[in-house]
Design a binder for these strands. Structure first.
Lengths: 172, 172
DNA sequence: CAATCCGATTGCATTTTGCAATCAGTTGCA
DNA sequence: TGCAACTGATTGCAAAATGCAATCGGATTG
């Protein structure tokens, strides 16, 4: 599959890649949720993606060069999807989208705390996160010291803290 | 019209606003092209938007709070569309989208020079541009000195320089 | 050996899209 | 006055995309 090529404008071409309601959602779940398998993406999807759409988009994202697929050695039927460098460099776009949505749209607190953290961390934190993703998905050596908490751990901890706080002190 | 609200995730909600093939294109033409009228948007569109889709998206963007519409005093039928603050703050997203597309997609040189300039200028240039847009669309006083060239003028000059250069020295 | 899980695929109704034609009112010009 | 051009749209229709449930054959687990 190649994109339509309505015009050579970079914004248009970017839209042709993920100007739909699902592609970026899938990439979000892989980047921030660490999801690598079909079923993980299908069942954990907050937005309830249908399996045929998921299959179609995974295929499309592979054809566009954003994902690769490999056999999972632990299970002959399992496939592991990996992000390519092209997909990993979407992190700044995701961060900006999250920051904008957090300001202007009716987000929930527990789902926006990660966007807030990512926004406050700024480009240095994005770089660290991309470095981790390159390690995870491309097998590259990580440049961050091994004793520092990973960005995903930080995001997860912040999310769980909000959830716990809201559970013990439910809003009126 | 309100958005679907599949989930309260900021990235999802942002996608529900412009996760389609046309909304951001229209906003791009208004932000970077300075287009304010229906016909301008219809006829200048590189990607060839259809008039019913344009009408539908303008209506939708107004309902979502990204645009406002006002009568044009010079012509009883003309409507002037204006960006709201919500739309103006999309500039960083546009810049990131352009930067990403420029690296990974088959952009043309003349259409990507603006993205390059915007990327190199970074957040300070984005701020100046948003300041200009607030002046243009919201009537706010501009903070930038009146003798400095506007960002849109800079972008336009860079574009025209590339076009001129390519015309006099056509590629083989 | 049955239940469950794996990554999909199929069929079908609904919705969205792309495209061309058209609309009624306004303007500019002869 | 007459008429062409232009204004922001709307309509009709075919094609494509989407949402949803059911299902597939193979692999694994208990």
């Amino acid at each position: 599959m190649s994109i339509d090529r309505r015009s050579g404008c970079p914004i248009n071409l970017s839209l042709e890649v993920f100007g739909d309601r699902w592609s970026l959602i899938i990439l979000r779940d892989m980047i921030f949720g660490g999801k690598r398998h079909f079923r993980e993406l299908l069942n954990s999807s907050l937005e309830g993606i249908a399996s045929n759409i998921l299959a179609d988009r995974l295929k499309r994202l592979m054809e566009l060069g954003l994902l690769t697929k490999a056999d999972d050695p632990s299970h002959k039927q399992k496939a592991i999807y990996s992000l390519t460098e092209m997909a990993i460099t979407l992190v700044p776009i995701m961060a900006q989208l999250g920051a904008w949505g957090r300001v202007w749209l009716p987000v929930t607190e527990e789902l926006s705390i990660r966007a807030e953290l990512l926004e406050k961390g700024g480009p240095p934190l994005w770089e660290q996160f991309m470095d981790e993703l390159r390690h995870e998905h491309l097998g590259l050596p990580s440049k961050t010291p091994p004793d520092t908490p990973t960005v995903r751990q930080q995001l997860r901890a912040a999310y769980e803290e909000v959830v716990a706080r809201k559970a013990e002190a439910p809003s009126v």
